[in-house]
Design a protein around this nucleic acid. Structure first.
Lengths: 144, 144
DNA sequence: TATATTTAAGACAAAATTATCTTAATAAGC
DNA sequence: GCTTATTAAGATAATTTTGTCTTAAATATA
C-alpha cells in the first residue's frame, strides 16, 4: 500500500508528534530507535516532510525535530502520504490507466470507487494528533 | 496499490477472459496489443498465473492463452493479486509491523481495519467473469 | 520426421527504490 | 571566534522491480 519511505515517514511523524505533545524535541537517532527504521534513510524522509512544512527541524545543539502546535492540529495522514508517495493511491486508476472515471471506466473502476473514497476520507480526516495521543495513552505501539 | 506486474496481470486476465467468453484463444502479442502492456514482461506474469492454474496456456500453432469454463467462474481478483503481489495488501500492517492486530495495534490499525476488510471482501467476491462481461458489453475499457 | 508456431525459462539489462556514507550548513555555549 | 552537536544535501552502493533477449520445449500440420 505505502512505500517503505512512506511507512518510515508516518512512523517517525507519529513518534515525533507524541513527544511534541509532551513539549519534547527529538533527535534523529531517537526517532530511529523508537520506530525501528533505518536512521539515515528516515532522516532524508523527514527532510522531505520538513520542506513540505509538516514538521519543524532545528539544527545544532539541542536541535532535532518537533511539531509546533499548528502542525499538531492540522497535519493529516493524507498530507504525509502525498508528500512522500504522491496522490496516486487516492486519485489513480487501479489498473494504471491515465484516464479512468465514471464515463470511461476501467473494468475495475466501479468496484474500487467506494473503497478509494473511504480511504481518502479516512486519511483526510485523521490528524497526526489523533494518532499520537493513542500512542501516548499506550493504546498502540510503533515497534516490535 | 498494485505493482506494475500485478496491473499487467489483471489487465491481461480480463482481456483473455473476455475472449474466452467468446470461445477464442489469444496469443501473447494480441494480449499486449489490447492491454498496452510490455509483451515479454506480460508473458512472464501470465506464466506465473498459469503455474497457479488461473488460466490455461497452450504451446505451439493455434496455441495461446484462455480461461476454461471453471476458471471463468471461479477465478477472483484476489487470486490474481495474491499470486503476483502476495497477500500483504489484504493482511499486512499499513506501517509494516510484523504483528499488528486489535490486541497489539499500530497507531493506524483501527483506522484501516474496516477499509482493508472492504477491500478484501470486494476482491474475494469479484470474479474475472464479472469484469470480462463488462468489457465485452462495452461498459469499460482496458487501454487508452 | 521436418517445419513452423507458440509459450517457458533463464540470462541479462535498465530503472526505481532503499540504504549508507561523507561533507556542508547551522546554531548553541563557552 | 572556537568547538561541539545537530540536520541538510549530495554521492555512492545495494537491492528490488521492471523490462528485454535468447534459447529451449511443446505441439499442430504436412
Amino acid at each position: 500500500m505505502f512505500s517503505k519511505a512512506c511507512e518510515y515517514g508516518l512512523k517517525a511523524m507519529i513518534y515525533i508528534a507524541s513527544k511534541s505533545l509532551d513539549g519534547q524535541r527529538v533527535k534523529i537517532g531517537d526517532v530511529a530507535d523508537h520506530t525501528g527504521t533505518p536512521e539515515a534513510f528516515t532522516a532524508k524522509v523527514l527532510s522531505t516532510l520538513s520542506r513540505h512544512q509538516l514538521l519543524q527541524s532545528i539544527k545544532g545543539p539541542y536541535g532535532g525535530f518537533e511539531l509546533d502546535s499548528h502542525q499538531l492540529k492540522t497535519v493529516r495522514i493524507a498530507d504525509i502520504v502525498s508528500a512522500i508517495d504522491g496522490n496516486q493511491l487516492f486519485e489513480g486508476c487501479a489498473l494504471g490507466l491515465e484516464t479512468c472515471n465514471a464515463e470511461k471506466p476501467c473494468p475495475m473502476h466501479h468496484n474500487f470507487v467506494q473503497i478509494r473514497n473511504d480511504l481518502k476520507h479516512m486519511m483526510e480526516s485523521t490528524t497526526i494528533h489523533d494518532l499520537a495521543t493513542g500512542l501516548v495513552a499506550g493504546e498502540s505501539i510503533l515497534i516490535r
